[in-house]
Amino acid sequence: MIPLEWYLALAAVLFCTGIFGVLTRRNAIGILMGIELMLNAANINLVAFARYMHPTILTGHIFAIFVITIAAAEAAVGLAIIISIYRNIELINVDKINVMKW
């Protein structure tokens, strides 16, 4: 049997890798990737605890499913925000070009 601690260790390492990504990345999408790593780490924790404590009730699995759902919604909204910034800056650039022409 694989000891529970191994799973928790992997989750902790993954969590810290995500933190490193969040702290060092300048690109917003890069930060988002770090956040996804952190969420996956928490999910591993949840599933591992569910497996070792209540393999017939599986509350951890349900929790993990909701986390994945929210992560997807969050990614959608966050990326939409980033795209909206991009469109705005694009628009400004194009406007500037028009002003300079005339």
């Binding site: 924790n45 969050e74 966050g78």
Partner: peptide
């Protein structure tokens, strides 16, 4: 907000454990 919530969910997983 996303970073804070990721930290929070890790904490919640520990409480669950």
């Amino acid at each position: 907000g996303s970073i804070a919530s990721a930290v929070m969910i890790y904490g919640m997983s520990l409480i669950y454990g």
